[in-house]
Design a protein around this nucleic acid. Sequence first.
DNA 1: AATGAATGAGGGTTCATTCAT
DNA 2: TATGAATGAACCCTCATTCAT
Lengths: 189, 189, 189, 189
Amino acid sequence: MAGNKKELILDSAIKVMAEEGYYFTKMSWIADRAGIAVGTIYNYFSSKEEVLEEIFAREFKKRLDLLAELEESPELSVVSKLELFLVRHFEEIKKNPDLGNILVREKEFPKKEGSINQYLNQIPQSIKKLLEKGDEKGELEINKPELMAAIIFGSIQGVVEQAIKLENYEMLDDASDEIIRFVEMKAVK
Amino acid sequence: MAGNKKELILDSAIKVMAEEGYYFTKMSWIADRAGIAVGTIYNYFSSKEEVLEEIFAREFKKRLDLLAELEESPELSVVSKLELFLVRHFEEIKKNPDLGNILVREKEFPKKEGSINQYLNQIPQSIKKLLEKGDEKGELEINKPELMAAIIFGSIQGVVEQAIKLENYEMLDDASDEIIRFVEMKAVK
Amino acid sequence: MAGNKKELILDSAIKVMAEEGYYFTKMSWIADRAGIAVGTIYNYFSSKEEVLEEIFAREFKKRLDLLAELEESPELSVVSKLELFLVRHFEEIKKNPDLGNILVREKEFPKKEGSINQYLNQIPQSIKKLLEKGDEKGELEINKPELMAAIIFGSIQGVVEQAIKLENYEMLDDASDEIIRFVEMKAVK
Amino acid sequence: MAGNKKELILDSAIKVMAEEGYYFTKMSWIADRAGIAVGTIYNYFSSKEEVLEEIFAREFKKRLDLLAELEESPELSVVSKLELFLVRHFEEIKKNPDLGNILVREKEFPKKEGSINQYLNQIPQSIKKLLEKGDEKGELEINKPELMAAIIFGSIQGVVEQAIKLENYEMLDDASDEIIRFVEMKAVK
DNA sequence: AATGAATGAGGGTTCATTCAT
DNA sequence: TATGAATGAACCCTCATTCAT
């Protein structure tokens, strides 16, 4: 039951924040949309920032769990791993574009190491590690893994951003293919 | 003199906003950093939002002017045009990373058609047009220009974001090469 | 409870505005006087202007309701109606001179049709209608009802203004008699 | 020349204040309307309040001078004196309704004994004295001179207020007759 | 656990006034 | 004298958070 209420609040927060952006979002709007009182939110979250953090935490946990799982699949090539990751990510975004909107747009909280930054930084890092593993294994030839990771991560974000802005969600279906093609350029033949 | 003061304010605003993010930035901090009174800012800008808009307007004007100029150079291939654009953009960011920080991070102002959104939307659009031109001219084979533009724009943003976050500005030197290589995959041989 | 808090704020506002005038009145003074926080005022009123409007609205409603009630009393002569109105009005002012002070002094908000102007304009209009009715019924002979209404309304305001300024509240007891005597000059014998 | 500039500023101030009201009037608007710089105003007036005070001072000086002059005319009856005063006052208002607007509307500056209050209080006082003189001389029978003065002063203000609000300036031509008729009620036959 | 009225620190903005030119 | 950019104190209003019920 308690879990349900927290879910309810998060769903409501995602909708409002996707529409208005984190800073314009008022706690009272989240409450209204959820059909509860403002005070109730504070029984489940200690602050507005924590609501956003929880959203990021959950979504990033999904991605990072998937990445960890893929990590431990020796039968898969690095490129396949990346592909599986992309496919799944874009599927999730397609299921809930509001979420994608938030994930892609909220970049504030400068300095503060905690907050959402901790999550945002992990994906490019994981991609970088993946690419380095590919290089070590002789699958790929990556000279500048940090740069490549930046490009790949950027591509992912860019696709989500445009898909939502243009309301062209089909773009998400083709995106992994296209990005993977880019990585395959680096494949050692 | 007047131009100087406006410049002074913008420089100060760029520094503060890069450090703190637009929403955390206080008008009084911009004034302090510029060594002037808060009221003075309002002699040059009508609101905090307008300060950010001016920053975006100026930087995007530079980019869009360059794109327009390249447009009218029939001797250049589409790929070369894109390359020149990228090289110049990354050079500018390297000269003033604070600016890059802001350009890449501020994505709020949802809905509001005016504000910074008008600028943010123009670059992917211009890239898309460039790609379509390349397709028409038989230089490139682009099936989904919108997707490709999203990926390229995303890559650019991703590189700037990571370069700044990791304080690895050399990344910016190699980024255009790498991104162009991706576009060249689409070249018709 | 809620009604009480609104009342509390209005009472406080009346006192402060009577002492200081609307423009000098600070929201924080109203709050202090009411023993509440500034923010609380905004749970009941959307702006400082709305506080003043509510004061006017309430007082004018009382007057206009009375006028409407008198309107529907065919047994009363027009002069008697006017007299009853004056007596009641001056009684009210005597009970709460602070209120009278505000009602008589605040005339700003130029142009703006909403705001307090809508109320201020209604009394002379009602008086004019009353005089015209008297003329029609053959009770009075009024050639210039607009002028007469202006004089009567001005007299009322003038009496309240001086009574408060000179702190001579007895003046209010005699005022209706004197003003009515003036109207009776117009009585058809 | 200097006198001219001061005149220019006052004329401009009257127009702006009549349109906007004292509190909404910005010093810069007065300057703009006068075709001069804001700073220049401060060469002739020490503050915004002083501009308003000067307007009141001048107009009230005219009235008080007239009253003083009438005072020393033993051949005139009190009623005639009052009539001459009213006629002149309404004539002036008709010549410059903007001025009337200000004179009638600005009542703020509570407490502060200086400011415009000093002027506003003098007219009812003078009227009261005039009435008392009439009583002494056996011309009039006035039991409550303070009340009568309040009514007469209120009438004057009310007429000006309505004439301006309704843009019915003809009202001003008939007003003195009507008000005098009221005073004549008190005449000893 | 749920409520929502109360809180009050905080910040963007205004604008009368100043003063160097 | 005239200018008008610079000043900065002042204030309305917002809204995340609290807490008594």
